[in-house]
Nucleic acid binder design. Structure first.
Lengths: 151, 151
DNA sequence: CGTGAATATTAATTCAAA
DNA sequence: TTTGAATTAATATTCACG
């Protein structure tokens, strides 16, 4: 398994669920079909600069709460990765979740691409919702383009 | 020794030097003349919401960058009711209408719940639109949860 | 409650191997 | 380099007590 992909999945796990321990991540990856050991997760956490912090009495892993300071001028892929963008899809919607404060920047960057399949882009503080023209191939196309830029 | 004072000293230690482990803090306090065990430091770190993060190749403790969100169910309940939240639904959408200006606050609060059925949350000035994953049971689940919090 | 001592659990590292 | 298995180290928790 590719390390880049694993890093992406780990970030996704942390955004999607409550991760209390490294074995939670091992379990998450196992459910996705990847058998990874705790030792590797430990290294990944170090490399991703994930933080461990108390939340309600229990410890959780979180993404580093830094904000990309190179907004506007940098490469598209740097922008998306600095904002820790995570994508999910349903029907003709693709949701791009970002660090708080980066939603509109990411939304603008995506708009500027002027991908023809995109019908509308809705920014929030920490996300950009892409409404794709009703055409399943179009959703796949946009998804693939975003995925290739992440990781 | 007073807990409050110890907490102060721990924060000071983290600001003054590089703290790699809890025993570093034990040593710091010992040098100040206080004999404290690792178990207590562990509890303090939890209470202070200190974070552990990789820096260069090593792990360091740092102060929390963002305020710990200790919004429990009570706060959530109060928040929604104070904003006079009203919910309505259609297909996989749930619209939460609020007092003008409260949309983003409510949207954030809902996002922080991390309910797994929610695909995306779109705030407006006076509402939060919840897009639920396409699964009728999921819509019911979210609806029930919101309804239980209102009124 | 808050704490230390002991313990259990979790996480980082070492080492061999691919 | 990257990784897993084994190991060590670090940290969270349990238990007893003040």
């Amino acid at each position: 398994m590719d390390k880049q992909l694993r890093h992406q999945l780990i970030k996704q796990a942390i955004l999607e669920q409550t991760i209390n321990s490294q074995s939670d991540i091992v379990a998450y990856l196992a459910k996705k079909g990847y058998q990874i050991t705790q030792a590797t997760i430990s290294r990944d956490i170090s490399e991703l600069h994930l933080i461990k912090v108390a939340q309600n009495g229990e410890f959780v892993y979180r993404l580093p709460q830094t904000r990309p300071d190179n907004q506007g001028t940098d490469a598209f892929h740097t922008l998306l990765n600095d904002a820790n963008a995570q994508i999910s899809r349903q029907d003709n919607l693709i949701n791009v979740e970002t660090l708080p404060g980066s939603g509109s920047v990411i939304a603008n960057a995506i708009k500027q691409r002027r991908w023809p399949e995109i019908f509308a882009v809705i920014p929030t503080d920490d996300s950009a919702l892409l409404i794709i023209k009703k055409d399943s191939a179009a959703v796949d196309a946009v998804w693939a383009r975003l995925a290739s830029v992440l990781g």
